[in-house]
């Protein structure tokens, strides 16, 4: 391995890294928002909305992100909807992630025992208060492992962005391999930067999971 080559590549990767992170975390934010919204629609059986939510979840959970991105980025402009590549990436990740997050929240909400609701109602809490202070926070802590798992999954999925010509980490690596044949160095940096991006989330996730485990269960 040639360390001079590595040093000279670092700025390129750093730039790509920040682009990837930006799209990744904005997409995750969007995914959480969509996920909560969709899970509520389904949990409360909101007419029409619950139906649409169900179709959305099935569609996006059963298709690859790459395919969704191609449709958003190459397909939609043909009917007059042009979305810039970065927005496409964020939107695609958000839509894909939303369907996964929705499932996590929904099963969290569904696994709160009825006796918990009754306990809250018996204290005089209204249904709204019961949901806000008891059911939702409990469901949220039950959902933590799933949310973290999905975050890692979504950050990994960012690796397909180069397909819609976003200059992310994969794009940079591919470019350098193609241009200069410094394959080993290019791949080495690729791995390092993905470790920097994902290892902290993975470790933090494990810590958080253990913490939540103590608080939940067995009341």
């Amino acid at each position: 391995m040639n360390f001079d080559v590595i040093t000279s590549y670092i700025p390129l990767y750093t730039e790509a890294f920040f682009l990837t992170i930006r799209i990744g975390w904005t997409g995750i934010g969007l995914a959480l928002f969509i996920g909560v919204f969709v899970a509520f629609a389904q949990h409360f059986r909101v007419p029409v909305l619950a139906r649409i939510a169900g179709i959305y979840v099935e569609l996006f959970r059963n298709t690859p992100l790459l395919c969704q991105l191609f449709f958003l980025y190459f397909g939609l402009p043909k009917i007059g909807i042009t979305i810039p590549a970065e927005t496409c990436g964020t939107l695609g990740l958000g839509l894909l992630g939303g369907s996964y997050m929705a499932e996590v929240f929904r099963s969290g909400l569904g696994s709160i025992p009825v006796t918990q609701e009754e306990g809250a109602l018996a204290l005089g809490l209204t249904r709204r208060q019961m949901f806000t202070y008891v059911v939702f926070p409990e469901a949220l802590s039950l959902s933590v492992p799933g949310i973290v798992g999905n975050m890692i999954f979504l950050l990994k999925e960012t690796s397909v962005f180069s397909a819609i010509s976003l200059m992310d980490l994969m794009f940079t690596a591919k470019d350098l391999i193609g241009l200069y044949y410094n394959t080993t160095e290019a791949l080495f940096l690729l791995v390092i930067f993905y470790i920097i991006m994902l290892l902290p989330v993975s470790v933090l996730g494990s810590i958080l999971e253990n913490k939540v485990k103590i608080r939940t269960y067995g009341a």
């Binding site: 006796t115 918990q116 306990g119 608080r215 009341a219």
Partner: peptide, 12 residues
């Protein structure tokens, strides 16, 4: 007020 067989404290 009501107290249940299964306590039903809020676990969080």
């Amino acid at each position: 007020g009501m107290v249940f067989q299964s306590y039903d404290l809020f676990p969080h």
